[in-house]
Design a protein around this nucleic acid. Structure first.
Lengths: 213, 213
DNA sequence: CGCGCCATCAGCCGATCGGCTGATGCTCCT
DNA sequence: AGGAGCATCAGCCGATCGGCTGATGGCGCG
């Protein structure tokens, strides 16, 4: 089954990107684009109806996030392999996406050849990752400095959100109806969890990991 | 000169997007894509050689920012109208881009019809803005709380980057071979420019505006 | 019924920050 | 020539932060 036509579904919120991908694959008879969706929810529906071999999926979309869509498809036992195609390599979504069941992870900067190869590989169930993503993953594994990525408690996130707005500890205390001492405790805890030593760095890490923003 | 073929130059770092745009315009005989560039610097060069009617320009690119490219073209008196085509409406670049001389500002989410109309309008020198951008502009004008969205200097950005890493003023001073007093001056300035009052909020705003991250 | 995690609070203290005022030299644009 | 913007530096001072130590009560899990 190596060289049959590979059927595709494109899920991306940008018409331009959808067109670009559709055009690329139209030029090669080895591929056939079955449909397009502009969001994760629609993407899941279409995937179940059209049963494509491979789904090209953006991650950040207004109408249903990519990671959720992938998880949903995995949960429903969809046959399609999901190839994540995103703009950001800085992304905290890399690992979640792969955990959710993505077969590959490419950046949109990838040249078309790489894209074609990746889709064929994905169709065969092989994992494909951008070099940038690979090094990121290796780094994450080799460096357990991110000890299972500790999760902030709800209260800690609340405090962090206020910190990002430039709120002082005293003001945060008033805002949350707790004492300033408690605010400081929460801060100390979330600094430890995020591996930082001050509020500015905490905000930066939070943005990088998608906790804020 | 209303209905002659409109010549285009595409400047975007993503091959997929370039292909998508090229494909779109290829389907309409009223347009002719003269060339593509992957970055601002290359874009300026090509624009000067090819002399297109309209340049479709992304803003955030690794090889030469869009705003700089637009400013450069304006300064050199290029004939081409620049139509900014970007992913973000959250963007702090909107106003700088228009100030730099962009004729229009569209989001990539725009349907193709809107895109075509916009390019024709731009070719005639008319200003075209996405509805989302318009409301943003109106807000910016009506609310002078954002005093022309000042741009950070290179040095200020350097300081801010270190701040986001949790670096103290003293350490920043050592790192940049300047005195702590100077670091504080830079900070005070960038706080004012970003409209914040401490480093944590500065980092947050910087992420929101794409200055960091 | 402990153990862990969370949320809450207290006091102390040195370190750091941010505002204020004021100054110099450089470059770019007009 | 002059002004605007940038980068550099200084000193002063009150406000804020972050670390440390330690404590209480609630909740879920085995």
């Amino acid at each position: 089954m190596a060289d049959r036509t590979i059927t595709l579904l494109i899920v991306d919120d940008h018409p331009v990107v959808r067109d670009g991908l559709r055009g690329m694959f139209a030029s090669d008879p080895g591929f056939s684009v079955l449909g397009e969706a502009a969001g994760g929810v629609e993407g899941v529906e279409l995937a179940l109806h059209l049963d494509p071999d491979v789904i090209l999926m953006d991650l950040r979309m207004p109408a249903g996030s990519g990671v959720e869509a992938i998880a949903e498809l995995t949960r429903r036992g969809a046959r399609a392999k999901v190839l994540v195609l995103t703009t950001y390599d800085t992304d905290s979504d890399t690992i979640p996406a792969i955990e959710a069941g993505a077969t590959g992870y490419l950046l949109k900067d990838a040249p078309r050849d790489e894209l074609f190869t990746a889709v064929r590989a994905a169709a065969e169930g092989r994992t494909v990752l951008s070099p940038a993503v690979v090094s990121r993953l290796v780094g994450a594994v080799r460096n357990p400095a991110t000890p299972t990525v500790e999760v902030l408690s709800a209260r800690e996130r609340e405090v962090l959100e206020l910190v990002a707005k430039g709120t002082s500890n005293r003001e945060i205390a008033r805002e949350l109806f707790i004492s300033e001492a408690t605010v400081k405790t929460h801060l100390t805890h979330l600094y430890r969890k995020l591996g930082v030593k001050d509020r500015a760095a905490a905000v930066a890490v939070a943005y990088d990991r998608g906790i804020l923003g």
